[in-house]
C-alpha cells in the first residue's frame, strides 16, 4: 500500500515537472498558430486555433531559407573540416611515436581551457586582416580544429588493440591506409559522437557571427532573429 502511494506520488511529481518544463516550448508553438489578438489574452493561447496563415506571413517576412541554408552549410563544412584535422592529429599522436608528441598534445589540451571570449578581439583583427569579414570563411576556419575533439579521439584510439597495427604492418599496410581503412571504420560511433558535438557547437554559434558578419547574405539563422 505504502509502496503504491509512493509510486503514485513520484509519477504525479514527475509528470507535473515535465508539464512545467515543456510548457514554454508548447506555448510558443501554440502562440505561433494564434491570431495576434488572442495571443495576448490569457489564457488565450493554451489551446491553439490552428491559424496556419502566420507561417505564410512569417515566411514572406525575410529570406528564412537563405538563413537556414547558411546555418546548415556552415555547420556541415565546419564539422567535416574539424573532424578531418582532429582525426589526423589524434592518429599521429597515438600511432606515430615522435619526440614532440607530448608537448604538442599538451598545447592542444591547453586550448580547451582558453575561453573564446578571451581571444575574440585578436581573432576579430586577424580575420579582418585576412579580408574575411562578412564571409563564410570567417565563420568556418577558426573552428576547423577542436581541442576537445582531438582529446576524445585520442582517448578512443588508445583503446584500440595494438596487435592489429602489427598484423596490418606485416601485411604491408601503410600508415595512411591503416588510418582510413581500419581505424576510421572501426571508430564510426565515436566519430559520430564527436561530429554531433562539433555540429551543435557551430549551429549554436551566436556571438562570433554577430561580430564578423553584417549582412543577411552569410549570416546563420540564429543571428538574424535579433536584427
Amino acid at each position: 500500500m505504502i509502496r503504491k502511494t509512493k509510486r503514485f506520488l513520484t509519477y504525479t511529481f514527475l509528470i507535473a515537472s515535465v508539464v512545467i518544463t515543456l510548457f514554454p516550448i508548447w506555448w510558443i508553438f501554440a502562440t505561433s498558430l494564434e491570431t495576434s489578438r488572442r495571443a495576448y489574452s490569457f489564457p488565450g493561447a493554451l489551446i491553439p486555433q490552428l491559424h496556419w496563415q502566420n507561417y505564410r506571413a512569417a515566411w514572406l517576412l525575410a529570406p528564412w531559407f537563405r538563413f537556414l541554408a547558411n546555418s546548415v552549410g556552415i555547420g556541415l563544412i565546419t564539422t567535416v573540416l574539424a573532424l578531418s584535422t582532429s582525426i589526423l592529429a589524434a592518429y599521429a599522436l597515438v600511432f606515430m611515436a615522435n619526440r614532440w608528441n607530448k608537448p604538442i598534445f599538451g598545447i592542444i589540451l591547453a586550448t580547451m581551457m582558453v575561453p573564446f571570449y578571451s581571444i575574440m578581439i585578436p581573432d576579430y583583427l586577424i580575420v579582418r586582416d585576412l579580408g574575411w569579414l562578412n564571409s563564410y570563411t570567417a565563420q568556418i576556419i577558426p573552428f576547423a580544429a577542436n581541442g576537445f575533439a582531438v582529446f576524445l579521439l585520442v582517448q578512443f584510439m588508445r583503446t584500440f588493440p595494438k596487435e592489429l597495427r602489427d598484423a596490418a604492418r606485416i601485411d604491408g599496410v601503410t600508415q595512411w591506409g591503416y588510418l582510413w581503412k581500419i581505424i576510421v571504420p572501426n571508430l564510426i560511433p565515436a566519430i559520430t559522437t564527436v561530429g554531433i558535438y562539433l555540429f551543435l557547437l557551430s549551429w549554436n554559434a551566436f556571438l562570433w557571427p554577430l561580430i564578423v558578419t553584417n549582412g543577411p547574405q552569410v549570416q546563420p539563422i540564429g543571428c538574424t532573429l535579433f536584427l
Binding site: 589526423l88 592529429a89 599521429a92 586550448t111 581571444i119 577558426p142
Partner: peptide, 22 residues
Amino acid sequence: QPIGYLYLMPALIVFLLFWIVP
C-alpha cells in the same frame, strides 16, 4: 616517424593562428 608532424600540421595551424597567438 617524422611524417606524423605532417598529420598534425592542419590542426596545429588552426590552433596556433586562432587560439595560441591570439
